[in-house]
């Protein structure tokens, strides 16, 4: 049991981060506003969770301009996808 618990990724403990990752693994990329609508959180809250996922190198972003407004696209990295899969596997093991 303890071993299994260690396999859980701390980065996905939070509900918002779990949501961000779930959305990014099934989409090529999503922009900030799309993520905000999906998760129903405030700008500041979302930004801080995105930053923490960036720090773990699980997501990456690209900035571009759309109609002169800045637009940030977020992607799940390969490492992020692997970590997320492992996290889900660990949860499934725990639920057995």
């Amino acid at each position: 049991m303890k071993e299994l618990l260690n396999k859980l990724d701390k980065a996905f403990e939070n509900r918002v981060r779990l949501g961000i990752m779930s959305a990014l693994v099934v989409n090529d990329h999503l922009d900030f506003n799309a993520l905000k609508d999906l998760l129903g959180v405030t700008d500041g809250n979302l930004a801080s969770h995105l930053k923490s996922l960036e720090k773990s190198k699980y997501i990456t972003y690209e900035k571009e301009f759309q109609d002169r407004k800045p637009n940030t696209k977020y992607f799940a990295t390969q490492a992020g996808k692997v970590a997320f899969r492992n996290h889900i596997n660990a949860i499934e093991q725990l639920l057995k």
Binding site: R15, L18, G19, S22, A23, V25, V26, N27, L30, A34, L38, L39, I88, I91, E92, L94, L95
Partner: peptide, 21 residues
């Protein structure tokens, strides 16, 4: 404990569905 993980799984599935048309 188990409850929380069941909820997590539910949340993951929901988010995947909602975000991919």
């Amino acid at each position: 404990m188990k409850e929380k993980y069941l909820n997590d799984i539910k949340e993951i599935k929901e988010m995947m569905n909602k975000s991919s048309r």
